[in-house]
Design a protein around this nucleic acid. Sequence first.
DNA 1: ACGTAGCACTCTCATACGATGAGTGCTAAA
DNA 2: TTTAGCACTCATCGTATGAGAGTGCTACGT
Lengths: 336, 336
Amino acid sequence: MELDRRKRQVLRAIVEDYVASAEPIGSRTLARTLGLGVSSATIRNEMADLEALGLLDKPHTSAGRVPSDRGYRLYVDELMEPRPMDEEAFRRMRLLYLRQVREMDYLVAQTLKLLSAAGDFLAVGIGPGVRQARLRRLDALEAGDGQVAMVLVTDHFVQHRLLELPDGMDASGLQRSLLALSRELQGVSLERITRTTLEAVAREIKGRMHDELLSFLHDCLAASEEQIRIAGTSHFLAQPEFREPGRIREAVQLIEQSGALQELLLEASGQAGVRVRIGEETSLPETRELSIVALGIERQGEVVARFGLIGPKRMDYARALALAEEVFRGLEQAIN
Amino acid sequence: MELDRRKRQVLRAIVEDYVASAEPIGSRTLARTLGLGVSSATIRNEMADLEALGLLDKPHTSAGRVPSDRGYRLYVDELMEPRPMDEEAFRRMRLLYLRQVREMDYLVAQTLKLLSAAGDFLAVGIGPGVRQARLRRLDALEAGDGQVAMVLVTDHFVQHRLLELPDGMDASGLQRSLLALSRELQGVSLERITRTTLEAVAREIKGRMHDELLSFLHDCLAASEEQIRIAGTSHFLAQPEFREPGRIREAVQLIEQSGALQELLLEASGQAGVRVRIGEETSLPETRELSIVALGIERQGEVVARFGLIGPKRMDYARALALAEEVFRGLEQAIN
DNA sequence: ACGTAGCACTCTCATACGATGAGTGCTAAA
DNA sequence: TTTAGCACTCATCGTATGAGAGTGCTACGT
């Protein structure tokens, strides 16, 4: 059965009503708001057909209809009208992406701030990991008062650690060793720098500083991969789907132990571009009642940043897509 | 009326029972568990007296007793038995504080990890602000590929920003200007570095880099003061007091918009040493059902780091105090 | 003066029940 | 193909009811 014009109209109206109200839609109200000259019985028939096609669900016998996952999918793919982005949010994004900053941690954090301010979504983001980052410089900055700041610079982020020099040690030896390593490994992906390489260098450094240096480098190689950032928790939890105490607990748990969110984000933002995953499509049991609009930013063929806008399946897809596409355009341009 | 031995026993038993069970305590069960050879009627009389003294509350006529704020206070000050710290957690703290790291952001983050692993508390922490930090070095590290990493080092933390150099600009001029400023302001508290000072320096830098430099320095001067760090949210939210949907929403909101938490922490950790604030004593309406065990770390007469263990008033004060005291000892020693 | 037994009273919580109202599916007629 | 009408389903809400826990008070014993 192909969808005729009216069926599409009905489906679209149901999705949009439901997105706005979070209440199942009945035939009577729909007949009124739709404003075609047809009665509720006619709408009921159309609804029954849409349900048979798997595009609508019934919470229970007498509660009105709700879009199914496939219903949302059809809506997103064919029925939805793209919406231009909020003017103010657009302006702020432009301002951010036209700057000179190339530090991904900073860009991710700022972008999440903008995203969570612009809608009711849970905004998540993750910067480049060791795979995508190339070593640019490794240095030790004498900081006076017996202290030294170790700094590791890559093309996407910077890491640092402020240390107290052990008695009798001076910073210049440390700096020489690090700069030597720096020159040697210039441009190499962090992923390819192995523990044994580091140990060879660290061997030149004696005593307690040896351990601290190794610890710092080790943290640099391990870090950032797992640092998913999250913003907009309270918007998200304010959604009516989390009104029951059980659901809200689940949601809090999902956010706290961010492993599942991270998996969701990585899966959904596999390649460059914007993508939508709805309900069951997320393939994670914890998120089967949620949807995500995700995007990956590529540079030289590698995904260096990922963002996701997460909400209940009932989320405002048009707005989320507008935001995501703008972030995609802006960041890709800024970086490349 | 002075508290005789038995009243103290009863109060202590009620607090400890309630801490363990989160259920109001009735006279019958208490008479049994207390194991004095007295009947429930006698316990009832004692309870009535304790209530008259303002040490116990009744949720409603037939629900057993619950400690009041003053009851908890008396328990903490006089009745509680200090508990030694968990062996494993103690070992880990020692390991952290014996290291060479002097970077407060790192120490705060690691400490919070340990604290939130060691109990059911919401652990909060905050590092030194501009008041406490003295400028040590300001530098621009050439990072190849037309990029430069600006680095600001103080005696407590490091800030950085990775920037793309505008066309035709080279890093060495930038570096010269920053190092000059660095020498000039060496050892000056960040608080005393004014916007006009910065502008004078930034004037030497032309074009787009001017704005970025100012933005970076401005962020450095503004930053870290408001970066309260939070760990252990899920432990905290799992407490039975947050079972109702309304309460959990409140708690989430409190955590999300961390302003109240920060205020609470600043007030409670006013000076060096460990302090306890119970319920109404917190003087913030949002936290009148919570308690905090807080500590401030001093260096040269200034508080450079603050930590708090937050829970419902029914929290395990003995454990929280043991943890807090250990952090206090360890960090004060490490820093000074 | 202190401790205890007994008892009436209060309050919450769980359960059951019926009324209400929204919404559906089906049938028959236009 | 559309519509009016109607029986039926189901969640929700308010009320009543009973059980259970706990208190406060009184009277009595030591």
